[in-house]
Design a protein around this nucleic acid. Structure first.
Length: 815
DNA sequence: AGCACGCCGACT
DNA sequence: GTCGGCGTGCTC
């Protein structure tokens, strides 16, 4: 094989042909990384996609400089998967490569390196090249590969860098975004000072007046001396209810104890003992048997289990089955913060054979996981969507937890693929099985399971036969007419919250809108505050006292007077979660009311602190956005209230009702998890709306039947396939013309009723880019392939118009 | 993607 | 007369 098709880490179509020099002939294999030159002197790490003997005629290929791997870094299953992904989602292989690989595995000319802070370097163990590079970095803090070419031979560069990265002397400079929040857990210890200097008897004497504080102090002291290396979890202190956090706080105020935080999601071994799994309940046993049956028939499974039905328990059983057969497991989550119970159990059992993978790891940590997966050192990987590209060996099972979650398909990061669907395909290449699980499966998955493409396994009962919460609809219009309201709350709702407070239980209030008011409007001239980058009004955030654009993140100070007519009367329109929080605090002045949304959780440890507060039952009422539907599994939440439920339904999106159903169901799952006495109050102007009525009846098959009928009526998925094409450009005129042109080309090839638009996107300008979109509704089945190739043809025709090349084009398959 | 090339207006 | 904006073309 004389020629290689190479994938480059650039967003370019297809692969590039390079000549394999004689000396590399016998070594080169698909899936290996190679060093190549591209465009003049630039060096890139590419991946061998295919080898062949066909000499290119239109250009003279360059040589492969060198091979970086002894064994292919990508197994053949992954190469097939990449190929499928790029064809199905109409994205470039280079895009996938960039997304899939950690930076230090794809070094290129523009990669910048720096010394790792606080490292002691042992020079005597370094070779000449390594020494040069370290010295260069001591002089100049940041160096890129092009700079390095000046003093290290091209062929040795990557080797030198890799060896220094391995030694942890240097690292890749990646301006890691500030968003990163490590999941940390609070631990406690006796103040170091106290242990060193002070007289214990004296301290205890002083504490004699506060018995509980003294007990707590002794408790911590005892634990700490018993096993100095085992950190003491703060939450553990309050488990049996004898101590409360106020006791701890008093001790901390006296400087006797202190709390500290440790990162939770680090790859670390666990030394505790392994608990045996509890027996499955009868219902769970049945579900497990059904899964086994499905697997033996070669079918994948959709596990539809109501909230608290113990899906996790079943996953665990199947994970252990898979591992005991000698195969490995990938456990997918929509976001890594949701590790919760599953991790604890698995960490105990598998220790170092368990690892985590997600985009918030440092580059070094990512490479570490890559290496261990490659060496088949990991039995189970808990990870987000980017893990699908890891070089798995012997993969036997993929679990997709919370399969309905939109986190599997973020719209902002390319390549645009749906991880839950891609997981099914990846599993096929590995001959592995998939369990997708959710309490509220997506309509598409439900349909596909009901059609027999997957096995549908239903768990309709909560663990331990605990009853599901009871739903009640409150007619807000009626309440208003009879003057039984206070602000956004009906007296009925206030009454129920009061009752819950009296029983010393907790309430969750869902209001899925950030900020205080969605608009500030001038009373006299109607002026509203638009974002300067986007065609969107800015939201008023009272707690931060500023205006925010929720789309581009821009902030502005709150206007005191109308900038246009100088009127001082600015009306707040549209209720946000901050306002609901304020209202609730006023109605219940003696209760602890906390807010949970992205804005209030931005501060370091904010989430951890609130979590513990709720766990210790210091918080009485939690007001929050959709964030509260995830991960809040507490025993004493008995009431879930949704004061303005209508706002969820009136969103311009054919999935709005499905989303509302999922959100309401997920949040209500927090209520009465132990008592079985949970209550959900939905306040609405439209109590007769089908979605609310169906939720109240809690008849799952009817709900899905309703969704499916609606989808069929309006030709939406799963009855059709959607492709959305979005065009963006700084100049409105240009993108308008471009999208008209693309629309006409598409209509040339496709039937009229398949092409909708072009029309302005819902947000016509975002980040200073004007946006237009075209929606394609294509038939399913065999015809789809045919139609899709026509779409591809149209896109190609569009790409040939040079004038439109500067128009950014995003294609979302299965929109 | 990202970089060089080339064509126009705003400055010393 | 030059600096730098961005539209265009091209990469094995």
């Amino acid at each position: 094989m004389q020629y290689a098709q190479i994938i480059l880490p650039l967003n370019l179509k297809g692969t590039f042909t390079y000549k394999v020099p004689d000396e590399l002939f016998s070594v080169i294999q698909p899936g290996m990384r190679v060093l190549v030159q591209f465009r003049g002197k630039k060096i890139y790490t590419g991946i061998v996609f295919e080898l062949h003997n066909q000499e290119p005629i239109e250009f003279i290929p360059k040589d492969v400089i060198s091979i970086l791997d002894e064994q292919p870094i990508l197994p053949p299953e992954q190469i097939s998967f990449w190929k499928w992904l790029s064809e199905y989602y109409l994205c470039n292989l280079g895009e996938i490569y960039r997304f899939a690989f950690p930076s230090s595995l794809k070094l290129e000319s523009e990669t910048y390196l720096k010394l790792k802070p606080n490292t002691v370097i042992e020079f005597e163990n370094l070779d000449v090249n390594e020494m040069y590079l370290i010295q260069a970095l001591e002089v100049k803090q940041l160096i890129n590969l092009t700079d390095i070419e000046a003093f290290i031979p091209k062929k040795d560069i990557i080797k030198t860098i890799n060896s220094l990265i391995d030694l942890q002397y240097i690292e890749i400079d990646e301006k890691i975004s500030e968003k990163y929040k490590a999941k940390e857990v609070a631990y406690v210890k006796i103040n170091d000072e106290v242990l060193r200097n002070q007289n214990l008897t004296e301290i205890l004497l002083k504490l004699n007046k506060a018995k509980k504080q003294k007990d707590l102090f002794l408790h911590i002291l005892e634990k700490q001396t018993e096993n100095p290396d085992l950190p003491i979890k703060k939450s553990q202190l309050f488990e049996d209810g004898y101590f409360v956090s106020a006791h701890f706080k008093s001790l901390a105020d006296k400087n006797l104890v202190e709390e500290y935080y440790l990162r939770k999601d680090r790859i670390e071994s666990y030394e505790g003992e392994i608990e045996e799994l509890e027996e499955l309940t009868e219902t769970q046993e049945v579900a497990k048997a059904e899964i086994n049956e499905a697997f033996s028939e070669g079918k994948n499974v959709l596990l539809h289990g109501v909230t608290s039905s113990g899906k996790t328990h079943i996953y665990l059983e199947k994970i252990e089955d898979c591992i005991s057969e000698g195969k490995n497991v990938l456990f997918l989550l929509p976001e890594i913060s949701l590790t919760k119970q599953i991790t604890q159990r698995l960490e105990k059992k598998y220790g170092r054979q368990l690892a985590f993978y997600h985009q918030k790891l440092t580059d070094f940590e990512k490479v570490e996981v890559w290496r261990r997966i490659k060496n088949n050192d990991i039995r189970i990987l808990i990870a987000t969507r980017s893990s699908l590209f890891l070089p798995f060996q012997n993969l036997g099972l993929i679990v997709v937890d919370e399969e309905h979650d939109s986190g599997y398909r973020p719209r902002e990061v390319s390549p645009y693929f749906n991880a839950k669907d891609a997981a099914l395909v990846l599993a096929k290449f590995y001959d592995a099985k998939v369990i997708s699980g959710s309490a509220t499966p997506s309509v598409e998955s439900y349909y596909s399971a009901r059609k027999g493409k997957m096995k549908y396994v239903f768990l309709g009962e909560r663990f331990g036969s605990v009853k599901l919460p009871e739903f009640e609809l409150i007619n807000f219009k009626e309440a208003q007419d009879s003057k039984k309201v206070s602000g956004n709350f009906s007296l009925r709702l206030i009454d129920e919250i009061k009752k819950t407070l009296e029983d010393k239980n907790q309430t969750i209030i869902l209001h899925n809108k950030r900020g205080y008011a969605s608009v500030l409007e001038c009373e006299s001239c109607g002026y509203v505050n638009y974002c300067s980058n986007c065609d969107v009004v800015m939201t008023y955030h009272k707690s931060a006292n500023e205006m925010k654009c929720h789309y581009c993140g821009q902030r502005a100070s709150k206007p005191k007077v109308c900038p246009k007519c100088f009127s001082e009367n600015l009306n707040e329109r549209g209720v946000g979660v901050e306002q609901i929080h304020e209202e609730v605090s006023k109605i219940f002045p003696d209760s602890e009311v906390d807010r949970m949304d992205v804005d209030s959780m931005r501060k370091k440890f904010a989430y951890e602190k609130l979590y513990e507060k709720i766990e210790e039952r210091e918080t009485d009422i939690i007001v929050g956005t959709q964030m509260i539907s995830k991960g809040l599994d507490f025993d004493h939440i008995e009431l879930v209230a949704i004061p303005k439920a209508d706002s969820m339904l009136y969103v311009q999106d054919f999935r709005a009702e499905e989303r509302a159903y999922q959100l309401i169901t997920q949040v209500s799952g927090r209520a009465g998890r132990v008592s079985g006495e949970g209550k959900v109050l939905i306040q609405t102007y439209n109590p007769d709306h089908s979605v609310f009525q169906l939720i109240k009846m809690n008849n799952i098959s009817k709900i899905y039947k309703y969704f499916l009928t609606e989808r069929q009526k309006f030709n939406y998925p799963p009855f059709t396939k959607l492709i959305m094409i979005e065009l963006k450009h700084r100049r409105d005129e240009k993108v308008n013309r471009a999208s008209q042109f693309l629309g006409s080309v598409l209509r040339k090839y496709l039937p009229e009723d398949c092409v909708l638009g072009p029309e302005r996107s819902q947000i016509s300008r975002l980040n200073n880019l004007y946006q237009f979109q075209i929606l394609l509704k294509l038939p399913r089945g065999k015809k789809y392939q045919e139609y899709k190739s026509l779409v591809l043809l149209s896109l190609k025709e569009f790409d040939e118009i040079t004038a439109y090349q500067s128009v950014k084009k995003d294609v979302f398959v299965d929109f």
